[in-house]
Design a binder for these strands. Structure first.
Lengths: 109, 109
DNA sequence: AGTTTATATAACTGATTGGATATGTAAAGT
DNA sequence: ACTTTACATATCCAATCAGTTATATAAACT
C-alpha cells in the first residue's frame, strides 16, 4: 500500500506535525487547531485535508463542529519502515549476543 | 534542528525510499543506484542531492565514482518523532503493568 | 592527446504545494 | 427570520518539485 508517499509527505510540514502533536493529546476542532498558528482558517483546513487523505487523522461531527482525531495505528506504517531502514541489525544482534552470553555466565544480576 | 522537514520530505518519494533501501545493503555508485529505475541519470543525481541535503546519506570519492552511503543515525530523528507521536503510552504502560504483575506472581515461566 | 566512463550542473517544463482572500453552507443561538 | 459560529470550497499566486535534454567536468584508459 503506497500511501507511504502521502504519509511521509504529510509529515514533512511543521504545521501539520504540530497539529498531529496537538491531536495526540486528544480530539480538537479546527478552531482549536488553528489557534496556535498565524495562518488563515482555510490554510488549516487544507492541512487537515492533507492529513486526512494520508490516513493520519479522521473527522467526526458534533453540531457545527468537525472534531479531528489522530489515527494512531496509521503511524505504525511509516514508523515500521524507518525502523527497518535504520536498524543496524548486525550491531543489534551483536548486543543481543553479548547480553545472552552474560546471562549464560550466570551474570544476570 | 528542523531538518525533520527535509528528512520527511525526502522520505516521501518512492524512488528515494528505494534508493535508501538499496543503500541499507551497502555503499553504491550513482550508476548502481540508477540501474533499477526508468529514470535519467540526472534525475537520480537530483534525488541523491535531496537525500544528502536531508542528511540521510553521504558521499565519498573513489576514482571517478562517488559512492553514497546511508547515514543510519540520521534515521533516528524522524523515527523517534513517530514513535513519540504514535505511542499509545497508556496502553503500553498497561501492558507493562500486566507483565510486571505476572512476574510478581512468580509466573515468569 | 583523445576517448570513454562516471557524474554534476544548467535550463526548461508541467504539476503540485502552501499560502492568501472571498464566498458558500449548515447548524445554533436570539 | 436573522445572525453568529464553525467550518468547507473556489480561485489565484508564487515557489518548489520531479522530470527532461543538453552540456560540463574530471578521472581512467588507450
Amino acid at each position: 500500500m503506497e500511501s507511504l508517499d502521502l504519509k511521509f509527505a504529510a509529515l514533512a510540514d511543521p504545521t501539520r506535525r504540530a497539529i498531529l502533536a496537538r491531536l495526540a493529546k486528544g480530539e480538537a476542532s479546527v478552531t482549536d487547531l488553528a489557534q496556535p498558528f498565524a495562518l488563515s482558517q482555510p490554510a488549516i483546513s487544507k492541512h487537515l485535508r492533507v492529513l486526512e487523505r494520508a490516513g493520519l487523522i479522521e473527522t467526526s461531527r458534533a453540531a457545527q463542529s468537525r472534531p479531528r482525531r489522530l489515527k494512531r495505528e496509521a503511524i505504525a506504517e511509516p514508523a515500521k519502515w524507518l525502523e527497518l531502514l535504520g536498524g543496524d541489525w548486525d550491531a543489534k544482534f551483536d548486543r543481543l549476543d553479548a547480553y545472552l552470553s552474560k546471562l549464560a555466565q550466570g551474570d544476570e544480576k
